[in-house]
Design a protein around this nucleic acid. Structure first.
Lengths: 120, 120
DNA sequence: CGAGGTGCTCACCTCCGGGTGAGTACCGCA
DNA sequence: TGCGGTACTCACCCGGAGGTGAGCACCTCG
């Protein structure tokens, strides 16, 4: 899935969007990038407690293929790669905002625990 | 997962919402119910080509637990069960609308096939 | 001189979401 | 009489998403 375009036939717009967001960390990556603008690999890893490096790379690669994130590699001696949102990534985030609002209301309703991420 | 409240700790509102929509057919069920109002089990099954009965039941039960759908059983001789959206289901659908718009734009961009469901 | 950080890749394994197919209790229709 | 429809449940299996841990090439800091 990571190396091939997904583009499966869709029933409606929803699953076309879901396809792009499906993946345990996709939406969180989107959110991180939205909050902080440009981030390096290790910064993202630290910002998403619990993510494995493999999954981070994999999801970032998929999101790059989907045209959601930009990946800029600096050929310096200690490797440096910067990730940022493309315009499509930004607009997807905007579309997710109303979902986020609904989710927050749901959290209130059911009284679930919420992890508050410490922003270093 | 079907029989226990999911309520896991969430990073943010998005995954609280995603939790509720995660499942291959959840968003489509939501859409069906939104389009047609009240639907019977077999009507939903026919409206979602490719869904297995087990998955339909399972998803409907989860969505009932999550307070998204109402399930009304008529104790008549040929079994009759009607499903409809609760207010939370309706509001979730509204929140998904902007996602759907984004998804439709993405379909345009990548030129993916789209399954057009014939509404009988 | 070694530990640790940077951005990965690779191999392996586990778990569970989802599919398949059968069974059920009752009815109407041909 | 038996087939098909209604609304399920149950048992089983498979594939893939996701986790674990190692390795790598190079550098800097203690």
């Amino acid at each position: 899935m990571a190396t091939s375009a997904r583009q499966g036939p869709y029933f409606c717009g929803i699953d076309a969007a879901m396809d792009v967001v499906s993946g345990k960390w996709k939406s969180l990556i989107l959110w991180e990038l939205h909050e902080h603008g440009t981030r390096r690999f290790a910064e993202l890893r630290r910002g998403l407690p619990g993510v494995s490096e493999k999954m981070l790379v994999q999801h970032l690669r998929e999101m790059e293929e989907d045209g959601l994130v930009d990946r800029e590699v600096y050929p310096v001696v200690p490797p440096k790669v910067e990730y940022s949102l493309t315009e499509h990534g930004v607009s997807l985030n905007a579309a997710l905002e109303s979902l986020a609002v609904w989710g927050r209301e749901r959290i209130e309703r059911i009284g679930a625990d919420k992890i508050t991420v410490e922003v270093a």
